[in-house]
């Protein structure tokens, strides 16, 4: 029975599903989801992003498709494609709102119902990777997402943190969540570590440094790298530009490319 359901499901053509999590908000989950998708596309992969941050969806704007809406087809909702080649497709509550400033003031059960629908009803087609961008915390959205995705090719979770202790503390709780939910941790990313002054090249650790790596060591999970604070990165996200294509010389580029490479290496090992 379950086998049949899976074959017919909209996720049948999706090879790997990754969750991007963090305990804290504003640490760069959507940023990492976006740049990871762009990097994977750069390596020739087809990628989808499912944005389950229902109260604060940022993915549509980060790809500059915030004015698009989703359409219905026989097999469900058609995701929004960001390019002609249809190499990146997106689904977000942002596409369902009449007015972009509408607040989605929902309690848990309603959020859970929409997440189930997102998992069941989006016609993704064939994808190499489906990246799931989440809101901060360990509550309704997270439990529902993991439960709904469990029957599929759920590869594991990437945890994002900023370097300071307050944020690392939240990620420790997120690690416990992964353990309890039986979710593999692919690794930890430390974002916003260090800022290189464009005027004098002095590096200041605005949000301190090293917390993410230390935590990875302590928890015995892979450390995927440090992404520095980079005004070119925040600027391209604001404008919905392809940072990976346009800014290969910027300070955040090597770290982001390295993270994508490790994910690719991990999956090719798995399939061989």
């Amino acid at each position: 029975m379950e086998e049949v359901a899976r074959e017919r499901s909209n996720l049948a053509g999706v090879r790997h599903i990754l969750l991007v999590l963090s305990g804290k908000g504003g640490v760069g989950k959507s940023t990492i989801s976006t740049e990871l998708a762009l990097s994977l596309r750069h390596s020739g992969k087809k990628v989808g992003i499912l944005d389950v941050d229902l109260c604060g969806p940022s993915i549509p704007r980060m790809f500059r498709v915030q004015d698009n809406s989703v359409h219905q087809c026989d097999s469900g909702w058609v995701p929004v494609f960001v390019d002609q080649d249809k190499s990146i497709s997106l689904m977000s509550i942002g596409f369902l709102l009449e007015n972009p400033d509408d607040a989605v003031v929902w309690r848990g059960p309603k959020k859970n119902a929409l997440i189930k629908q997102f998992v069941a009803d989006v016609a993704w087609g064939d994808l190499d990777f489906l990246i799931v961008d989440t809101p901060p915390g360990t509550s309704d959205e997270h439990i529902s997402t993991v439960e709904a995705l469990r029957p599929y090719q759920l590869l594991g979770a990437i945890l994002v943190t900023t370097p300071q202790a307050v944020s690392v503390g939240d990620v420790r709780r997120e690690l416990t969540f992964c353990k309890k939910m039986n979710l593999r941790v692919l690794g930890i990313v430390e974002n916003m570590s260090g800022f290189v002054c464009p005027h004098c090249s002095e590096c200041t650790n605005i949000f301190s440094k090293g917390g993410g790596e230390e935590l990875a060591k302590h928890a015995g999970v892979p450390f995927l790298g440090c992404v520095p604070l980079d005004p070119q990165l925040s600027q391209s996200l604001e404008e919905g530009r392809d940072f990976i294509q346009e800014f290969p010389k910027s300070s955040a580029f090597p770290a982001l490319a390295h993270i994508a490479q490790q994910i690719l290496d991990g999956t090719s090992q798995q399939s061989s």
């Binding site: 800022f195 002054c197 464009p198 005027h199 004098c200 002095e202 200041t204 605005i206 604070l229 005004p231 925040s234 600027q235 604001e238 404008e239």
Partner: peptide
């Protein structure tokens, strides 16, 4: 805005694009 402690110049790390 962020004032560099060394050269005292300001950078917009999170630019107010709108």
């Amino acid at each position: 805005g962020f004032i560099c402690p060394k050269c005292k110049n300001e950078s917009q790390i999170f630019p107010p694009t709108t």
